[in-house]
Design a protein around this nucleic acid. Structure first.
Lengths: 122, 122
DNA sequence: CAGGATCCTATCCGATACTG
DNA sequence: CAGTATCGGATAGGATCCTG
């Protein structure tokens, strides 16, 4: 069903799959493609990072939105969170297997846009 | 540079590529991954559609946001717009080559999420 | 049918201040 | 360091009405 999940024109009212409002996939996609979620996932695709490393990496994000985005991604099972109860505390974030699965096409998307817009490299 | 485009730690302030705020790619990504842009692109990946067909397909979108999203996507060169000056007028939208290029990983992303969340099909 | 214009609300998001 | 809580401005977005 790679091409499916559109509306199925079988005449009935239901038949929509993910385009319908109450589809759980829609929420996840919305989180993944949210303003900052994208960059969090892309930032984490290579190495696990700590909170402040993410903040430094994603220029322009506020702590509030970073924390919020991370919470959503953890809730959705895309990102894990490891707390080292030291002083000062150390919290590390990384991609789960699902997160890596999702991060792949996201990276691809990202690369294609970049390549398209910046072909003036030589 | 599939793995690159992170910050380049060469010590200087500049050296960021796409995570920096004033990167043009970031705008496009933001449009592509906008609340409704995603669904427009995914809706169009198989067939060209008219305005009302898009509205029907993407459940929950308002005409205003659909028009607005379409305008942004056309401006970014991801979607083309063909006007048939009949009465009533007929406007068709479809993916440009760039749009198709971008739609691919988006569809992949979409499929992976769907597959993950709805494996109870059988 | 395919929108543009207007109004109004919901939420996003940054800034600031505070906590463990 | 890694957050949470609160406030207020900016923006997204829905509803309605109107036009070619």
């Amino acid at each position: 069903m790679a091409g499916g999940a559109q509306l199925t024109q079988d005449g009935s009212e239901r038949g929509y799959e993910v385009f319908h409002t109450d589809c759980p996939a829609r929420d996840v996609i919305d989180h993944v493609t949210s303003r900052w979620g994208v960059w969090v996932l892309i930032s984490l695709r290579n190495n696990d990072l700590r909170f402040f490393e993410l903040r430094e990496s994603i220029r322009g994000i506020s702590e509030k939105m970073l924390a919020q985005s991370l919470r959503a991604l953890v809730r959705d099972g895309l990102v894990w969170r490891k707390v080292e109860p030291t002083t000062p505390p150390q919290v590390t974030y990384g991609l789960t297997e699902f997160g890596r699965e999702i991060g792949e096409p996201l990276t691809e998307l990202f690369d294609r846009v970049t390549q398209r817009l910046a072909p003036h490299g030589s």
